[in-house]
Structure formats: C-alpha cells, structure tokens
Design a binder for these strands. Structure first.
Lengths: 357, 357
DNA sequence: TTGTACGCGTTATCAG
DNA sequence: CTGATAACGCGTACAA
C-alpha cells in the first residue's frame, strides 16, 4: 500500500488536483473547498503520504532543528537540561540535535561550521567549554555563528556577544553553602574542585573565597584534574593526608555532586563519619544525592528549568528579533544530613531559608 | 566579511567559475585543476562559505541524520547508549536526533510519521516501549517505517520484523545473579520489579523464576508501579512489612540500579544492614553503583557497547543492504559488597567467573 | 477556489 | 577539466 518515495505530485495526480492544492490541504488549511480537501486527504491517507520536511525546509529556510551543545550527556546535570530542552522544542514541533563539545575544549570555527552547515534554527550553548585567553576569539567565532542562527547560552554572558543568557548564580550558591556551614560553627572549610578552565569552577571558587573571607572562615583550596567520582574518592586522601589532623577542615564543599559521591566513599574508607567527623556538601543536587549515606546537602540548580526556559527563548528568538539580556537563576540550598544541620537543631539553616528535604 | 546567506552561486561568480566547479571543489575533489581549486578555495575561505546541507540532502536523499528513540535520556542507561551512539554517528559525519517515546507507550503510526517526515537516514530503537497485545500492530507500524529507513533495535527481535537486533541477555543475566546468590547460601530470594509491559522487565522476571526453580530457591515476587529510586525506597517497607520475619527473603534482586539505590536507603531506614541482614543486587551497573554503601553487586549491560555497535550497524545498513540478524550480548556479573560475597570468602562467585570490583 | 510557474541551494549529467 | 541544464520535493506568487 504505502510506497516509500511518493511526492506531492503523485498524490496530486491520484487525487486529480494540482500539487498546489495538495500543499494547501497539508499546510495551511485555507482556500480549499471541503470536497477537494476531503478527496486529497483520502489519497494522502491511502498511501500514508508524508511530506518531505527537507524540501519544505529548503524553501522556508527553517529546518525546525535546534542544536544543543554540551560536553557530556551522561552527566546528569546535562541530561536534565537536554531532556527539558528537548521537550520544550518538541512541543513547538521542532527536534533537537546534540553536538558534543568535549570538556575544556574551545569552541572553534571548525566546530561551529558543523552547525552552520546544517542550517539549524538556533543553538543552545550549555556551558562546559573554556574561554580562550583572548576573549575576542570566542566572541568572534560565536558572532559568526550568530549570522546564521540565534544563540542562547546556559552560562554567564560572553564578553562581546549579544544574546540571551540564562544561568544559575553559582557564586551566590556557594556563598549560601559557606554561610550555612559557618552558622553551623565551621571555622575551616575546604573547597574541592577541579583545575578546569571552565567558568563554572571559577565562579564557585570565587564565591567560596569571598564568603569565607567575609565570615572569617579559613578557606582550604584543593584541586584535582577532573571532577569524577573516582577523583573525589582519592582526593580526600590527598587532601587530608597532606595536613596534620589539627589543620583538617571540618567541612568540605565539593564542586559537584558527582565528585561528592566519591568524596563520601573516600571518607568512609578512611573510617571518617559524615557529618560527625567531617561535614560534606555538594553543589548541584542530582537524582542520587538524596540517596547517599548520609543524604547530601547540596544546591539545586534547577537544570530542568534552565533547559526549558533557554529553549523557549531560543524558539522565541528564531521567530522574532533576537534579544540580548541575562536572566540569573538563584540556586536553592537543599539541607539534608551530610552537613550536620540536623545535629545542631536545624536552626541555622532555617534562618537562611534553606529547604529541608 | 562573512555574509549569512551566500550560496554556491555567489562563490562561483566571485571566483569566476561555474557553480558546478565550486561544488566539485567542495565535495569530491576530482576533475578540477589545482589552480582553479585554489582560487575557489580562497573565495570560500574569504567568505567563510558553508554549503547548505539541507539542499545537499534533498538531492542526495541522505539527510545524514539518524534518529534515536528512547524513553528517558535522564536514565543513565539510556544516556550511555545515546552518548556512544552519538559518538559513533559523529565519527561517520552524521548527527543524531533524539525522539522521546514515554515509558510504556506504544509506537504508533503517529509517532513514526515524525521520523518519516524528517527523512532520517535510520532509526535506532532503544527499547522501553510496550508491545501491544496484537504483535502485528507493532510490526506493521515498523514495517511502514522501514520503507523509508533502516531500523536497528537495542532490544530483542520484534515478531514479524526483519532488522538488526543487538541486545543484552537480560534473562541470562538474572540467572547469573540467582545462581550467585544461591551459591552464597540464599534459599529465599525476592525480585523487586515494576509492573511494566516492557519486555525488559518480563525477561528479567522469567530468568528469575526459571533459575529459582532450577536451584530450588523460593522466589518472592514484588511489583511496584514504576522503578524509580523513591519507589525502591518505599517498596522494601511494603515487601517486608507484608511478611512475617521468618518468611523474609534473605536477598533482594532489584530490577535496576536506580531502584536499588532507593532499596538500599529504605533498608537503612529500617535499620537493616546490607549484606549482613539482607543481601541486595542490582541489575544494570550505573556509574553510581560502586559508590553506594555498600557498593552494589550488579550486572553490567555494557550500554556504551550496545550504543556503539547498534549505531555502527545502522550506518552500515544505510549504506548497503539492510540485514536481519540478532546479536546477543552477555551481561557481566559485577561482584561488589552488597551481595555479601566478601563475607563468604568470595569463593562462590569466583567459580562462576564473576568480576570483583 | 484552483492551477501554473518559479525558486529554495545543491549536485548529477552530459556536452564541450 | 569545465560549464550549462536539469533535477531533488515542496511552497507560493500570480493568474485564471
């Protein structure tokens, strides 16, 4: 019954009308008599004819495809962003294509040429890339891309680039954590991060240092090459092993929950109790964070909302004039047990408006 | 410098050659003199001209886009499959589009019309969908799709459909687990699953029942509506609460590691020790499974390999004749601590060739 | 309301 | 080695 390469001409012939009429029936249901429309529809159904969106896109200069650029879909944060963005695009009749840009890579001309070649309707930059020493390099590349399609980023504004930016206030988020821990009585707090050149680490570190200084908390900075669970596990040995016990931090802020997962295990293997011996907080509330032992106090970045909002803006930019503004989302402190707040009667965090989960 | 809507004609004019020559320079570098090629290249670079792959695809009937159909990219199993498939496609110059088909949904004509409309080069079915009561429904729909593009599945063969199927032997995998637990001395083992109509649950249950019977182990079946961590957490209360302590299973096989994550927490909250009081094993080795407390004994399905192999076959099917065969991958038993093997001197599992991690 | 003719940007075919 | 011409499948003026 259904043949694979039917065109609108075949349908038109079979229905005894012109291809234009078939097109009208299939697209904007306007200016076509009910009877002919009916006849056309029957033929369309009979052959299960599906118009070719490639051809359609060529003519309309709209591919109905959005590109999403991220380092790693296996990271639950990015998976959440992607999922929400995909859903939002889908509800607008568009699909998404994933373009992977390895962690700590720069966005090159070569990379964006793939996007341009495909004539996407827009590009969503989800972060994780590095910003070259000369910021003009990045903005130049992205401006080139912008001549072809609107851009929305899920990271802070890029110097020299006008577009919509929707992102979490990582600096402020870490400050909340430092403040929370300080109120719980911690005087010496470590930040376990990764020596990455992505801004997400830098912002967190900045917030950490600033708030530590403000609250007269002694900051301890510890960096690993990458922020994997395995690295988290081994990092605590290196960190604590390098310090006399008297100089140990009493709380650990870990750059993300994936790494915190490893940190918890490393501590367990060292025979340390959390939070009694040492408090631990994560930084991006993943699905597993409430199932660790003890459940992890962390920051909710609301990845789904970021994905949805940014995609919505991207679709909007495609249909109207591209705008340029920033929208900063406030991470929420999720207080569970790994920070020890439950040990202290929970008063400290409640004052700050954190959420107990 | 770079204008957005340059076409091959503009380049041709500027270079003083015909569009055909520009096309030749850009595609198959054949039959064009070095000097003209050079001149064309200069103009192309000058304007950063990027050919429009939409137009290219229209003529060549190849979109260089592959579709991946899965229920939930946030599930780490699917994220791994997707990631590997994306990489494999990318190395062949193609991109992937995600099509989400909610858990427990059927593949309808309406759904595949989206794929056909886009004229994808192929479709990767990753499982998670239900098979309707009448199997002809499913095969009919997919046969329709096959008239437009090759299909590869990462699930067992679909009755009446000829295509490549690459999938893990879930039934055999669970049998390994039952055997492992039986050798550790367990006589009463529960299977915690979900009342889904997807085959992945059914196969596991089948393997469980068969092997339990063969080894004279008393099977206890417990079903929840969905297999989330939260459901896992509450399920143990329901399961154990419904049984007198003397009838409690001594080991729990959980349908997947996500749910097992919750099971471990539920047990913890009930004050039960794993594995001393009750053993727990998962079923699909996720990244977090080695960081649980205790680390989870589970089955490695090798999602990345499944994703890579299946995409490779899909690309192959696109370029040559579509084949039809099944390739069954053997899950690997990963023995960690939640099963209690370490308590028993590790002999049992070693005999079976499991891997200690 | 309907049909004709053209164009979207590229590549394939053929002639030169 | 190069150029003209005709597709690819569809939407859309414009004319009827």
């Amino acid at each position: 019954m259904a043949a694979a390469n039917l065109t609108i001409l075949d349908i038109a012939k079979e229905a005894g009308v012109s291809p234009a009429t078939v097109s009208r029936v299939l697209s904007k249901h306007t200016n076509v008599s009910p009877s002919t429309a009916q006849r056309v529809r029957e033929v369309v159904d009979k052959y299960s004819y599906q118009p070719n969106s490639i051809a359609r896109g060529l003519l309309q200069r709209q591919s109905h495809v959005l590109g999403i650029i991220m380092p790693d879909i296996k990271h639950p944060y990015y998976a959440s962003v992607f999922s929400a963005a995909q859903r939002e695009a889908g509800s607008a009749g568009s699909v998404v294509q994933l373009y992977r840009l390895a962690y700590n890579s720069a966005i090159t001309d070569d990379f964006i040429s793939h996007l341009i070649e495909r004539r996407l309707d827009g590009a969503l930059l989800c972060g994780g890339f590095i910003e070259p020493s000369d910021p003009k390099d990045l903005s130049a590349v992205l401006k080139h891309l912008q001549q072809y399609m609107p851009i929305v980023t899920i990271c802070p504004p890029i110097q020299g680039l006008d577009c919509v930016n929707i992102f979490p206030d990582l600096e402020g988020g870490i400050k909340k954590e430092v403040g929370h821990l300080a109120r719980l009585g911690h005087k010496r707090i470590a930040f376990i991060g990764a020596t990455q050149e992505t801004r997400s680490v830098g912002e967190r570190e900045l917030g950490f240092r600033m708030e530590a200084e403000r609250l007269s908390v002694k900051p301890v900075l510890h960096y690993e090459n990458i922020h994997t669970p395995a690295m988290g596990e081994s990092s605590v040995q290196r960190l604590l092993g390098s310090l006399p016990r008297s100089a140990w931090p009493t709380a650990l802020i870990v750059v993300n929950d994936l790494m915190a997962l490893g940190v918890l295990k490393g501590l367990r293997r060292m025979g340390l109790r959390v939070p009694e011996d040492i408090a631990v907080v994560g930084s991006d509330n993943q699905f597993f964070s409430e199932y660790t032992d003890p459940p992890l106090t962390t920051l909710d970045l609301n990845a789904e909302e970021l994905g949805q909002l940014s995609m919505r803006q991207l679709l909007h930019a495609r249909d109207s004039k591209p705008a340029s503004y920033s929208q900063v989302r406030d991470p929420m402190l999720i207080v569970r047990e790994s920070c020890g707040a439950s040990l202290s009667g929970r008063t400290a965090a409640l004052l700050e408006g954190g959420v107990y989960a």
